[in-house]
Design a protein around this nucleic acid. Structure first.
Lengths: 112, 112
DNA sequence: TATGATACCTCAGTGAGCTAGGTATGGCAA
DNA sequence: TTGCCATACCTAGCTCACTGAGGTATCATA
């Protein structure tokens, strides 16, 4: 798997968004991110699973074992209420940040 | 100074952009980033100066001592040709990445 | 039968950024 | 003249997210 070369810190909001419509298992979260970003972001499993545990430890995700469509055991994650608030905050943060970077990258010659 | 809570990896492109019109000293680079982003990004000096040394070590920046408008000694940084190519690549990377994240954050319920 | 996809995991190492210090100069206000 | 803020540079220790590389196990399919 090719590395996705993440900007460190952006993975959390992607994971939280991935589970915002209901429980999804880890492997499915990785697939969802890859698919909705047209293969631009391909999260390494060595980044994904520790991140899930981290978000769970912080109280933003809850786990629950279940069965996939094809009858496999899988650990489903869902948002806690705190996690949902966090998702909203992280989306705001991302938008503010990306607007700021865009402004810098599209700036014309310095005025000082 | 309030931390800007950078997405790790985004500082390089900001620095390269800051010096893309001519030599700027470190302190001025920090100020430029803060100003062009309306105070959204406020780079810590403990992040800025090591980053400048790193980019110089990689051959993307060159240093040169000079005098500021107010007669102070300051270390001016300017882009090398390699640094300019790198700037273009990093801008492409940022746009691709931010488009991908936007796509994910604005996605509607999963289709699987 | 073996290969790839699914589904999970850990661990060592890297390295960027944060926190918190430090030096020195110049200008300005109390 | 004293003290403080802005300018201008720096380092060191720490944290911790991610990379890269490994591992287990099941199931479908070629």
């Amino acid at each position: 798997m090719a590395g996705s070369d993440l900007y460190v810190g952006t993975l959390d909001v992607l994971i939280l968004k991935a589970v915002s419509w209901g429980p999804v298992h880890g492997y499915g979260i990785g697939r969802w991110i890859r698919q909705t970003t047209d293969d631009v972001l391909d999260i390494q499993e060595g980044a994904l699973y520790p991140a899930l545990h981290r978000l769970q430890r912080k109280g933003w995700l809850e786990e629950e074992w279940g069965l996939t469509e094809n009858g496999r055991e899988a650990k489903y994650y869902k948002l806690t209420p705190v996690g949902r608030r966090r998702l909203r905050a992280e989306i705001v943060r991302w938008h503010s940040y990306s607007r700021a970077v865009h402004a810098a990258l599209e700036a014309t010659p310095a005025h000082s």
